[in-house]
Every structure is written in C-alpha cells, then in structure tokens.
Design a binder for these strands. Structure first.
Length: 640
RNA sequence: GCCGAUAUAGCUCAGUCUGGUAGAGCAGCUGAUUUGUAAUCAGCUGGUCGGCGGUUCGAAUCCGUCUAUCGGCUCCA
C-alpha cells in the first residue's frame, strides 16, 4: 500500500501501482470521467501512470489550468497529425500548450505555405481524426532509437531537440498514425476533443533565436464542448469591442501623433481627468500610509546611470544621451526614478529613527522600447509610474512588504478589480549571470519575499526567471471582466542600488549601516493601468472616476435655462456633468450620451420642470422614472 | 530590432489588381423643425490619397525609401 496525500492535506491509502485515474474513481465516478492529468510530487503526469511510492497528488480536470493545458497540448499533437496528413513531408519544431490554447511551430514542405485560408480544412481533418477516438500512447525509448526514428523521418528539428536530452528520460507519444517526441502528459483519448478553432498563423524563430530559421507558428484553441468554443469566440468579439485603443479614441481619452512620435501618448482632457483622479486617490492612500510625495526632474547626468548600473545594462538600447553646448556634458532622459530618489536620500545624514523613509513620486520616465513592441497605452516610450522607494532597515523589509500588499489590495478593490494574484518572481537558476549583485543579498531578498507571502491574504504563484536584473519581485496580476489576466504593478527588494549609491543610516549603535531599498508601483504605470481599466470596464468607469457623471437632456430648447440651474445645484454637491443643449430630438441625445457611457442621463421636459425634478435614465439600464433633484442627489451619493 | 500586412475626409470604409489627378455613410457647418427615452429633414463644407524620391505624356493606383499603425517573434530597468 502507498500513502497518497491530497491538496487539502488528507492522506489515504491505495494499492501500489494505482493510477491517478484509480484514485479519482475512488472519489467519484464523475471525477474519474473528467480527470485529464495529475500533478504527482510536483510533476505533471498522465492520469494512467502507475504510482509506486507515497506521493502528494493533485488531480486536474478541464476546470483548472493544468487540466486545460494537458488538453491543449494533446490538441497540438492532433493538429500535427492532421498537418502531416494534409502536408506530407512537413517538419515539426515545438508544439506546446499555453495559457490560452496551443501552437505548433512547423516548416511546411518546400514550396508550400500555410495561410489562414487553409484553417477550415485543417480543422476539419483534426475533428475527423478526433472522432477516431485514438488513445495517446506513452512509450519510453532509448536515445539511439529516438534519433533513428526522427532521422529516418527527416524531422531535423526533433533530432536537434533530442541531442540535448539524456538517455533514459525520452518518451514518445503516439495517437493514430502520429508519433511525437514529448514529455507529456496527455489526455487519454482524442475523442474528448470536440471543438477546434485555429486562430493565427505567423512566423516564429526556431528556439526563439532570430539567427535561426523562421518556422510557421499555427496557434489555436480547443474545447471538450462545442458550446464552450462558441462562448470563447463571443468573448473575443467582446474583447475587440473593448479594445482600449478603440475606446480611447471614441471616448476622447488619449491620442498619439505621428509627428510627436511613436509610443508617446497624449492625454486628452477627459483622459487626463480620469488619470488625475486615479493618481489623487492613490496619493491620498499613500499619505495615510506614511509616504511623502516628492518631485524630481525628467533628466539626469549620464554619470547617475553609470553609478546605478543602468547605463551598462541598457545604455545602448536607450534614448541616447542629450548633449549640451559644454564639451563632454551628457544628460539622459530618466528611464526610472530610483537614482534620483537615492540622491534625495543622501541629501543629509539619515538616522535609523527616520526609517522607513518612503519617497513617492508620479514620475514620468522614458524608455526606448523596440518598435514592434509598442501597443496603445499598454506599451509606450514615455509613461508615468506611480512610483515609490522605501528605504528601511533589513528588519523592516517584511513589514513594509506586507503594508504595500495591503495598499495594493485596497486600491485595486476600490477600482473594481477583485481577483488579484501575487506572483513571486525569482531568478532563473539556469542563468545566474543575467543578474547583478551579491549572491548573499539575492538569497536574503528572495527569502524575505517568500516569507512575507506566507502571511498575505492573496493567491500567490511562483515564477522562476521573472526577477528584475537587480532583485526579486512580487508582481500583481488581476483578472478582468472577460477572465483575462494582466500584470499590473510590482514590489521589488533591492540590496544593490543602496550599495552602488553608498546609502547609509546611523543605527542605534552610532555606526553607519546600509539600508534596504524597496521599489513599488501598485499600478505599474498610469498608462498601462488605464488601458486595463478601460478594457475591464468597457469604458463604463466607476462613478467616482467617470469624467462626466451625468448629462442633462432638455427635451426642447425651452428647458435649457432650467437645466443650467440644475447643473449649478449639482455642481454645488460636487456632482459633475453637462447640459446637452444641442437642437436635437430627445432620442438622439439619449443615443449619443449612452454611447459616451455617461452613467446618468437626466431628462427634463414640461413635467419635470413643473415638479422641480428630473427623469433619471441609467446607462445601459434605461428609464428609471421621475424624481426630485434632492432624491437624485441622495441616490447619486449612495451609488458613489 | 526581425517576419508579414496596412496607411484614401475628423471617424468607418469603397476606388489600387487592369495608371487617365477621388466617392459613400457618419461627424461638422447652415437652415427648417421644438421634439418625451438609442439616429428629424434638407442643403453645404471638407481630401497636395502618410512623407520624400523614381518610372511614365500622365501615379491614390507601378517601383524605392522613410514614418506610423496592425498581427506575430524577440524584448520589457
């Protein structure tokens, strides 16, 4: 017998050699039907792989991400099988599952190309093969046999992948007539794949290296039910409608100009108001939490960035130094605020009594992002970080960390994001030379984050290789109204800059000590945050953020003056809005202002003027009937 | 930065393949209308067809180049 421990901590005994499937069956028939794969002792495996020793196990179904990814990975193999049938001689590179579907990088036979026009016939072939209900069969093979197989087949990319693998760890998976080099796991049978949609075709370099040959990447998604595919496609339609680049233009929030330059957003009046309200709200929270607001210039001497280490790391790829009439003098547009804040720390000697010192700045920075990377407001070359640097003692790190997480949770909740995850971003253990700073400091920093995360009330995940080059981070991710996941701000522990800038404080022992620096930005940047907020809300911002909270709609010009009076009264209550006094029908005014996502439309005609009230119409909900102005004001204040 | 595509009125788009100097709807302006819960009617204005260069008797249309945008890739202090 072996002991199997479940995620909830329960331990049960099973016969040695039981599979995840057997274990699922012992829980319920439904689970046995739906289980797709399992994580056994931290490794994702097939559901029918015998377990011979005590283990911890998590069962995966279509409901969780690992289950989905197993399903999609298997679909990638199914697509490969279809492609091989349709394009004999096609060569295969990588074919993994991702967060949202799968792809396969392939090289079509000489002289042939695959375009989106070919998708229907590939999809059809895939479904045809799926209906054969072929099992995915796992097989352990020797390196020599594996090499022989793919050399014979002429799959040079697979042969290359095999070179890096060790004998004894190599497995093949076969379904129907298609065999692939694959670590697995896979779903048991192709029959589960009921709906398939190929989404995109594009280029991708073999192994992500632009020196290598470019392969054709075909990506798609699949589902166990046709209905789920339909819902997914509807979600994509909705996402298109909410695209912040489209809404930004329609709602007149921000713009770009070819003349000003790529990636340099300009906030129009309504966008500026929105951004300012977000910033003011955060600033108030920060002041309450002991932050002090500061302002620093947009440029700094090149030397500042030589000291910080950023020149060596990013100098070549940055906006190049600004020259002055003076020989040899060079300034850089600031790509981050930390060096300025470090100098501010050094303004005078610091005592341990004034730590933690929390310097906050809505600091605008400039980074020369690659041309192909620019994207609306979410990836730009000039942006404003909701930045702050906390200088503290090593003992204070954990407490400061927890306080930052508190602010982030409160602020994001207020703005309407309730599904927040914290990602612990650590070094990639395989590439230690990518990072600067002492090994010892890295270990302390990584450990403080891990320790702090044990105490926070937030979902956490760990990601290796996602750390910044100078320190580990905690990244905040939100799930939006369409279920998409976005990365927002970060908290980063930094032992490196205090070294480089030789920051010190005098401790209770009357000796100098080195402070720790924590970088943090809950939104990340105002630009990126706004882009996510626009897509999350589809432009229907929370009432307190809406640039205009109401529009008064006079039914005819006779009521314009009365509306102006109402506007004054509402302004006295800090309720902001406009009168739509255009010479248009009421139907037209309603339509135009509904499309502008105005939260409340106040319609005023004969009846309302006589009664001294308004007829309320709520955005997206329609007519709510007539009420007095005072009643509207109290209703408004309740909604706020 | 790399691969591929696109750029025509404020917006959304037709015209480009097959060269003969532009068209629609909406927006805007003017007038009529004075409106009761998602588009009132009529008239008018508006474009060196992204910039520069080339081919040609003639270029929105063909070629080159630059800029910007879009979809991927790589990247993201």
């Amino acid at each position: 017998m072996i002991n199997i421990k479940f995620p909830d901590g329960n331990v049960r005994q099973f016969a040695a050699g039981s599979t995840a499937m057997d274990i699922a069956a012992s829980i319920s028939e439904g689970l046995a039907r739906n289980v797709l794969s399992a994580t056994v002792n931290g490794t994702l495996t097939d559901r029918n792989l015998p377990i011979t020793q005590d283990a911890t196990i998590a069962l995966h179904t279509w409901r969780d991400q690992q289950g989905k990814e197993t399903f999609w990975h298997s679909t990638a193999h199914l697509m490969a099988e279809a492609l091989e049938a349709l394009y004999p001689g096609i060569k295969f590179g990588y074919g993994p599952a991702g967060e949202n579907g799968f792809f396969y990088d392939v090289e079509p036979p000489e002289g042939q190309a695959i375009s989106s026009d070919d998708f229907p016939k590939i999809e059809q072939k895939m479904l045809e093969l799926a209906r054969e209900k072929n099992d995915y069969v796992r097989q352990e093979v020797s390196k020599a046999d594996a090499l022989a197989y793919f050399t014979e087949k002429g799959d040079e990319y697979k042969v290359e992948l095999l070179q890096d693998l060790e004998d004894g760890t190599i497995t093949f998976y076969t379904q129907g007539g298609f065999t692939d080099l694959c670590r697995g796991p896979h779903i048991p049978n192709t029959g589960a794949i009921k709906a398939v949609k190929l989404m995109k075709v594009g280029g991708a370099f073999w192994r992500g290296n632009e020196e290598n040959k470019q392969l054709t990447r075909i990506s798609g998604i699949s589902f166990p039910k046709a209905k789920e595919l339909k819902e997914y496609l509807e979600m994509l339609e909705e996402a298109k409608k909410r695209d912040h680049r489209k809404l930004g233009k329609e709602l007149e929030l921000f713009m770009f100009s070819e003349k000003v330059g790529a990636g340099l957003p300009m906030w129009l009046p309504k966008g500026h108001q929105l951004r300012q309200r977000l910033a003011n709200y955060l600033e108030k929270k920060q002041e309450a939490a002991g932050y002090q607001q500061v302002t620093t210039p947009h440029i700094g001497k090149k030397d500042l960035y030589v000291t910080s280490g950023h020149w060596a790391k990013y100098g070549e790829d940055s906006f190049q130094p600004i020259k002055t009439p003076r020989e040899g003098e060079e300034f850089m547009l600031k790509p981050m605020n930390c060096p300025h804040h470090c100098e501010m720390y050094k303004f005078r000697p610091r005592s341990y009594r004034e730590l933690p010192l929390r310097l906050a700045e809505f600091g605008t920075v400039y980074r020369y992002e690659q041309t192909g990377e620019l994207h609306g407001l979410s990836r730009v070359r000039g942006f404003t970080q909701d930045d702050a640097h906390i200088f503290c003692t090593p003992e204070q790190v954990k407490g400061e960390f927890l306080a930052v997480v508190d602010i982030v949770q409160e602020v994001l909740g207020m703005i309407g994001f309730d599904d927040v995850t914290a990602q612990i971003s650590l070094r990639d253990p395989e590439t230690p030379d990518k990072y600067i700073g002492k090994e010892e400091n890295w270990q302390i920093a990584e450990q403080s984050i891990i320790d702090a995360c044990k105490e926070i009330d937030m979902k956490t995940v760990t990601a290796y290789g996602e750390a910044a080059f100078y320190g580990p981070k905690l990244d905040f991710m939100v799930r939006d109204a369409l279920g998409r996941s976005w990365q927002l701000g970060t908290v980063q522990v930094d032992y490196n800059l205090p070294e480089r800038f030789e920051l010190e404080y005098i401790g209770p022992d009357n000796e100098p000590h080195r402070p720790v620096m924590i970088h943090r930005a809950p939104f990340g940047s105002m630009e990126r945050f706004t882009s996510i907020l626009i897509e999350h809300t589809a432009g229907k911002f929370p009432l307190w953020l809406a640039p205009e909270q109401y529009v008064l709609l006079p039914i005819s010009e006779k009521f314009n003056d009365y509306c102006e009076e109402l506007k004054t009264k509402l302004a006295a209550q800090d309720i902001r809005g406009l009168v739509d006094d255009r010479n248009e029908t009421i139907g037209r005014k309603i339509r135009d202002n509904e499309l502008k996502r105005i939260p409340f439309l106040l319609i005023v005609g004969e009846k309302e003027m006589e009664a001294g009230g308004v007829a309320l119409r709520i955005q997206g909900e329609g007519d709510k009937g007539t009420m007095s102005l005072d009643n509207f004001i109290s209703f408004f204040q309740e909604q706020l």
